[in-house]
Design a protein around this nucleic acid. Structure first.
Lengths: 224, 224
DNA sequence: GACTCATTCAAGAGAATACTTGAATGATGG
DNA sequence: CCATCATTCAAGTATTCTCTTGAATGAGTC
């Protein structure tokens, strides 16, 4: 891909990394991988792509340093190659947030309409957890929860929310979190729990950002 | 461009921003704009693109919030829309630097071979300038220099370097800077000045990064 | 060593992108 | 208001990208 002067070549390689982040499917794959390492089949299912297609996207991401892979038994496990991929995406999102009208409109229409309460910062949540002042609910899938979650969090996948309301005490405030910024799950959860009379806020961003800050992370299928 | 669920749509818009940064020509345009606002014709000449082509790239960048434009007389002046575009590119570059072998090889072969001395940090340079301990040389074009430069810097475009050696005292250390990280100009300058017996180091990154940190900036054609 | 399974490769159709050319626009200056 | 200049638009071609399909690979299992 590179050509001409060496400076242009460096731009070309940098642009390749940019191109990796220039497709919605690939951003979605990266969001999944940010929750924890996973095999191709799983990623494909999660993002609704065909396996061959997901594989191709993953190979592009690997080629340009965004993800890495290793073989485990007969599966290939992909993982994020570099924490900074999340920083780069956060920067892109920030630009879209400020400067792309359609992005803003969508946020207002589809996210803030569900829950426009200010999100809890990770610093504050850290304190609240220490004080046992809140119930932390992880609304991601069991799988993602098992790969890593906030200490003491209760895993209630969004689909099971109404069925499992009895597990949630009405007295305590609830803090819901999910996969990352503008992951719709925590907005949904906040909206539906509030409709049932709970006091509930979302955590700022999601699990990957919590982990990236070096905060305590628990693993395994159940926090109880 | 967006479709399906609102979450996927947000990814799609974010990806559009990524796509903007996914082409070497556009990264080069952004690097130019980081030096200061400029009209299309100028940008096209600087980056070696046709005017129509540069215009198209600029329009894409504008559409997705990376640059902005305003009319001044009969020209359209483009400028960086958002400082964070530079952050995003820095993140992409960092990923390439660490994870793309070709990038590393190129740096070693074409940049570090010219000057592998550690660059001066902006913090340190700030101090050195205050103490008048160094001569600061800006090796960019007159135009870029005029749009903004380090306080007290001497502008010697790289093409005029040998011709103007008499302006540089041999006693003092020289610090050269240019357009940004891996802009080849300051590596070239360091190499050539050293060949002439000067003590010389490069500044870390370039003028846009200096300015982005809110440090003092001078304007006009001459620092003297 | 044949079989199974997850992943990758290869080839092809369709869509999107990049760049060129030449014409259109829109503000300015006589 | 006509001419000029900078930029944008429109159309066309070549290239690249995306996704699908079906076959190939390569590690484990029987």
């Amino acid at each position: 891909m590179p050509k001409h002067s060496s400076k242009k070549e460096l731009f070309a390689w940098t642009a390749e990394v940019g191109r990796c982040l220039g497709h919605a499917h690939r951003l979605e794959l990266i969001e999944c991988l940010a929750q924890g390492p996973r095999p191709v089949e799983n990623l494909a299912a999660f993002t609704g792509q065909s396996i061959a297609n997901a594989s191709q996207h993953l190979q592009l991401l690997r080629r340009f340093g965004c993800v890495a892979s290793e073989r485990r038994g007969k599966q290939i496990i992909y993982r994020l190659a570099d924490e900074r991929v999340l920083h780069a995406i956060a920067a892109l999102r920030a630009i879209a947030e400020t400067n792309v009208a359609e992005f803003r409109d969508l946020v207002r229409k589809d996210f803030l309409s569900l829950d426009d309460k200010e999100a809890v910062s990770r610093v504050e949540l850290s304190r609240l957890i220490k004080e046992s002042a809140v119930i932390v609910v992880d609304v991601r899938s069991n799988e993602e929860f098992a790969a890593g979650h906030l200490p003491g969090a209760l895993n209630i996948p969004i689909a099971e929310l109404e069925r499992r309301l009895s597990e949630l005490p009405k007295r305590k405030e609830i803090v819901a979190y999910c996969r990352g910024p503008y992951c719709i799950l925590s907005f949904e959860a906040a909206s539906r729990l509030r409709a049932h009379g709970y006091r509930v806020r979302r955590m700022q961003d999601g699990f990957p950002e919590w982990k990236a800050e070096g905060r305590k992370v628990a693993e395994g299928t159940s926090a109880h």
